[in-house]
Simulated assay, not measured.
Amino acid sequence: MEKDSRAELFAHLIKTSREGWNSLSRRQRQVLGAFLLIDGVAKTLALTDLARAKKRKVRGPKWVWAPLITFVDVVGWASYFAAGKKR
């Protein structure tokens, strides 16, 4: 992909995101913002806990959990706390 086409794609994504955000009502923006805040805090807590946990306290390898928590939104960190962490 050429540099110009990447820049155009990025500009298009920004424009589309901005249009989507502007189409939301104030209440929808508040709910989305709260959800994103909760998701960010929970991911941070899960990744911090994973980094500090000993291998024997985690079900499965840590290198599998880290990208799962990071990239799979709510399901990633929720599954880590529900099933990945041994009690």
Rank of each mutant, 00 (worst) to 15 (best):
Y80S: 04
G20E: 07
I69Y: 08
F81T: 04
A83P: 00
W65Q: 10
G20N: 09
F71L: 13
K57M: 07
G20K: 09
L68Y: 14
Q30M: 04
A78K: 02
R18T: 08
E19K: 12
A46C: 10
K57E: 09
A46P: 01
S25V: 08
I69F: 12
S17K: 09
A46W: 06
V64I: 14
Q30I: 04
K62Q: 09
L47G: 02
A51D: 10
L50F: 08
I14T: 01
F71H: 05
E19F: 05
R29Y: 08
A83W: 15
K15F: 05
F35M: 03
R87W: 00
K15E: 10
W77T: 00
D39C: 00
Q30W: 01
S23Y: 03
V75F: 14
S25F: 03
A46G: 06
V75A: 14
E8L: 12
L50W: 05
M1H: 00
L9N: 08
F81A: 05
W63R: 13
W77Y: 15
E2S: 15
K85N: 00
V31T: 08
F10E: 09
D73R: 07
A82M: 11
L32I: 12
W63E: 14
R6K: 07
A78Y: 14
D49K: 14
A53D: 02
K43C: 05
Y80A: 02
